[in-house]
Nucleic acid binder design. Sequence first.
DNA 1: AATGAATGAGCCTTCATTCAT
DNA 2: GATGAATGAAGGCTCATTCAT
Lengths: 218, 218, 218, 218
Amino acid sequence: MTRWTGHYDPPVPRPNRWPEILAAAGEEFRERGYDNATLEDIGARVGILKGSIYNYVGSKEELLLAVVEQPARQLLAELERLRADAEQSVAVRLREFVRMQVRIFVEYHPAAFVYVAHIGRLTSPRFAEFREMDGQYLDAVESLVAEGARTGEFSLAASPRTVALALVGMLDWMHHWFVPRGAAADAELADQLFALLLGGLLAGGGIKEISRSFPLRP
Amino acid sequence: MTRWTGHYDPPVPRPNRWPEILAAAGEEFRERGYDNATLEDIGARVGILKGSIYNYVGSKEELLLAVVEQPARQLLAELERLRADAEQSVAVRLREFVRMQVRIFVEYHPAAFVYVAHIGRLTSPRFAEFREMDGQYLDAVESLVAEGARTGEFSLAASPRTVALALVGMLDWMHHWFVPRGAAADAELADQLFALLLGGLLAGGGIKEISRSFPLRP
Amino acid sequence: MTRWTGHYDPPVPRPNRWPEILAAAGEEFRERGYDNATLEDIGARVGILKGSIYNYVGSKEELLLAVVEQPARQLLAELERLRADAEQSVAVRLREFVRMQVRIFVEYHPAAFVYVAHIGRLTSPRFAEFREMDGQYLDAVESLVAEGARTGEFSLAASPRTVALALVGMLDWMHHWFVPRGAAADAELADQLFALLLGGLLAGGGIKEISRSFPLRP
Amino acid sequence: MTRWTGHYDPPVPRPNRWPEILAAAGEEFRERGYDNATLEDIGARVGILKGSIYNYVGSKEELLLAVVEQPARQLLAELERLRADAEQSVAVRLREFVRMQVRIFVEYHPAAFVYVAHIGRLTSPRFAEFREMDGQYLDAVESLVAEGARTGEFSLAASPRTVALALVGMLDWMHHWFVPRGAAADAELADQLFALLLGGLLAGGGIKEISRSFPLRP
DNA sequence: AATGAATGAGCCTTCATTCAT
DNA sequence: GATGAATGAAGGCTCATTCAT
């Protein structure tokens, strides 16, 4: 029994499980969905009991928030940066946007997919900020598309809003099928998606003739 | 034969609430998601108690099945028909496919959206058939795209699979934003989405030049 | 299998356990206190599981509310009636007040004791009404005492507020020791408490001399 | 003997947080009640974590014990002393009793109120001693009252037991409303309560006549 | 067919308590 | 002595499901 010497041993930092918990939660939320994921299972992945998770976070909802926060912010921040970048053509910026989003899907995996898969079903007031961010995100895409139309780079077959919705759908739906395959392959996929968007299925042929023979509104 | 007593019970219409229940379930599943929807709320919409629902269906899961069955089958059936239709060009058939899907979103509303919103999270064995249907659906789109490439109608910037996934994402993501606005407006929207896919943002300009200046892989 | 005839059999009233549940809750709350009482134990008294209690009440707190409501209201209502009754002298009304309170302790047993034992620790907003009622109750006693002072019936050694607090304490503390012994004995007890209040320990002797020899503030 | 280095570690006051913890516990127990008070909140008041409390005490229950011990013992000890004091009249000793109890409420604030507020809900075996002390306390009051009746000082309208219970209730209920206002005001309040007990509401008038017109048992 | 009531399993959350550092 | 972290045991509440009437 040592005598108390009047000073405290600097608390040796014990293994902090927060990163593990965050990762485990991301995976469970991704695999089972927020509602079906249980704290017990998340804890089990880390090797702790469900109650112990509350040493790190105040509620299951807060855990979802924590999982989703980084990718959500980064997604929006990078998009805003691209939108405001007047140096590059709109087309180039749009390409970068697609590349960026895929990159974030990879970098924040699976958290970013948890985000896009749960946006729209996150009705709790705690998520107001994220719903708003999602709105801004869509607005930014729309505004980028509209800019391309204004500058004459694009000749739109639909309103910028509709184009934005289609593009975002194309990208967000990736959470159903995309699996990272390495930086190179992922970047190529991004560019393919961009090419699809940019030139469509007829990228190599003549647009005018074809579209003449398929009048949208006869 | 009973004696005529001077009055008769009017033929009470057999109270068959099945259609109401199905509709109520569809709406709850759509608004809250399957996991958050409760049989109690579904019953409340119809004016019965949750227990009474078991007079019509064996389980909550079965109810989801019932909600989703019609639109799922129809979606696949019509797609198969289009794919096999050798009379028309691939592009036309693809246009019809988009029109058809939007039409089904409207006609089976909100059931069709329940379907696309829950595909991928329906892991129970009971849904094996639907997961398989979803696979066939995606295969059909892919095969249609591939046919267009074979016939030279399309010049693809990505594999048929990727194109199919992008197209399906564009369409299925609609459950986040689409609200029916009448047959005409809905058909126009479908055609806009198709045009987007067909010609892309540069529909009015020259594809070749532009794509030359944005080499996908520098 | 009987054919559906188009009308409903009037639902045979099944044993409604609400009264039993209310009684069981009252007893558990009384014996263990609200915080230590468990729904499981309450259910066990009735022979049902804890979850089943939610067929009758929305939360544990609501159950406490339900237990406490009747005695709380009655207590206040009867007191208000007495206070407003100008027919009788204040002393008589005060005696009736004491009798009444004891009667309610007996009649609403143990619910009334749950009430007085938990007033003051019921901080939830749901109990705002009851806290207010308690305030009115105390005000009514005070006003009755003050009336006696005004009419000259009483010659107070303390403010009406203090007298009211002392009286109420005397009565409410009964939840620590009172057990009903039948109408006659209970009424006698009430009258003894009243006599204590009215005449004090020296009821049979001379007040003036004694109190002169014990000056409150020398 | 170490060499003088030119400075010395000031004798760090052994951090003994026990008094702070005791005070913090008293306040939390008072404000929230034992069951609702958490060790975490108690620790937070002192600036330590809940786990650290176990360096001072073996359990939450023991902490309550510690909080309550001093006032409980003192209350009983002083009462015993008064009861045995044959020098003074019973009335004087009763007055001292009331003064003493109020004084202890003030001096051991809020611990003494924690004691009276939790007596009767402390069923754990650990509290047997205190329950016994409470019994002795009540017995002492009763015996004092009875002595007054024997000596002829008092003319009781109820059994000594009932009188004791009423008096104790009056005093113990103070935990619902009493706030210290300084020695003078507090002592005056004590004397008012005593006067109430001694002479009742009719201290200034004639007891006999009044009580004749309100026969307790008609 | 519908009801009222009950079941049972599961989940989130709380909290006293323990313990290596 | 204090910390950070974990435990384990409840307890409240939800809800799909069952069943007698």
